[in-house]
Design a protein around this nucleic acid. Sequence first.
DNA 1: TAAATTACCACTCATGCGTGTGGATGTCAA
DNA 2: TTGACATCCACACGCATGAGTGGTAATTTA
Lengths: 206, 206
Amino acid sequence: MSGNLISMEKVKLTTKQKDVLKFIYQRIRTSKLPPTIREIAANFGFSSTGTVRDHLKALVNKGYVKITSNKSRAIELISEALFSFPILGRVQAGLPSLAVEEIEGYLDLDSLVFSDNDTFALRVKGDSMINAGIMPDDLVLVRRQAMAQTGETVVALIEDEATVKHLRKRNQKYFLEPANPKYEPIPMTDGISIIGKVISVVRRFQ
Amino acid sequence: MSGNLISMEKVKLTTKQKDVLKFIYQRIRTSKLPPTIREIAANFGFSSTGTVRDHLKALVNKGYVKITSNKSRAIELISEALFSFPILGRVQAGLPSLAVEEIEGYLDLDSLVFSDNDTFALRVKGDSMINAGIMPDDLVLVRRQAMAQTGETVVALIEDEATVKHLRKRNQKYFLEPANPKYEPIPMTDGISIIGKVISVVRRFQ
DNA sequence: TAAATTACCACTCATGCGTGTGGATGTCAA
DNA sequence: TTGACATCCACACGCATGAGTGGTAATTTA
């Protein structure tokens, strides 16, 4: 994206320009589709597309929107992404709105979705990984793969039962290590296979 | 939006259809503008717009996208279909593919994403909630609200610092209770305010 | 006061773009 | 083997749409 909103001096908008910007903003928020020039005209009762273009030109010049030539609906707002959550590093008292300086990044849930098409969720049973913050009934997102590296959290098949464990190596031997002193590490034998690697843990309340 | 974590079975997509859906998805994510039929054709090297229409028709029939007639770029993703993973209750040996019988439901991330626009993620600092499975550097999704119920996991502001704690009531008094014996419960005083409720914990690896 | 900006209008043009028709080939379940 | 899909093609129609030209009038700015 082009702009730091922070360093850019804010150019004042007229009331009418603000109205147009607000309309575009709302259209993107609600229908997720920017309006065409004629749709803007219809909304404000303009009988000429030229009128809209004048307003858009002003919004572009003042740095509020970006427009790609010869593409329909190609009005882009200069603002943060729609489908992600701002990650707040610090939260200040009062906290009226999400001040830009506080945002340290964005949580992208959707990059998980298409990471690849062999991903599934597994509901965790038992407390064997409790010290790794993986609680009973948590959902772990698992990328299906037969190999894993030591230190990674994996899903292994032990007697037709799927379990989440850490993969460790000790004295040239591989172990499935629980994160709970109550349980013992399980040596990797022929009957045990790794079916995937845990890429995310998701817990939801209610 | 749905709200159920557990939903009905989805209709399977072919590899090609998945590719097309993925492209549409990525275009919306990156350029914030759904592609036109011809843009899709160009991306896949199709020389006919009819080919794209066939794929889109399949995606519509299978409930993955919604299309508005006679409007440019009017391809809408049906989020429930997108942001979900099958939840496997049992994993069988051999595990060739995701057999339907094994799937106990779907993990629905969409209700998080589209829940409302007053939700943010907060990176957890410290180990005060470690026994609740909330580890340092985890991301908690927070719905901004000033009230909470006892027993809920909340984000509170203590001296301009955001902390995640359990809200408890003991002897008619409210406490912010850590999930770690190393730390003491903090009595709710005037200087402390609740800014939100934790609705989800997300941890990602690598 | 002159020049620029704002806020509209009418009209035209070329291309963007969704849609329709018709056809080809192959796969797979009934 | 018939029919439903899936996956491509060519070609054409017609409205959608962005952009251009050339105005008028009020307001603001230099």
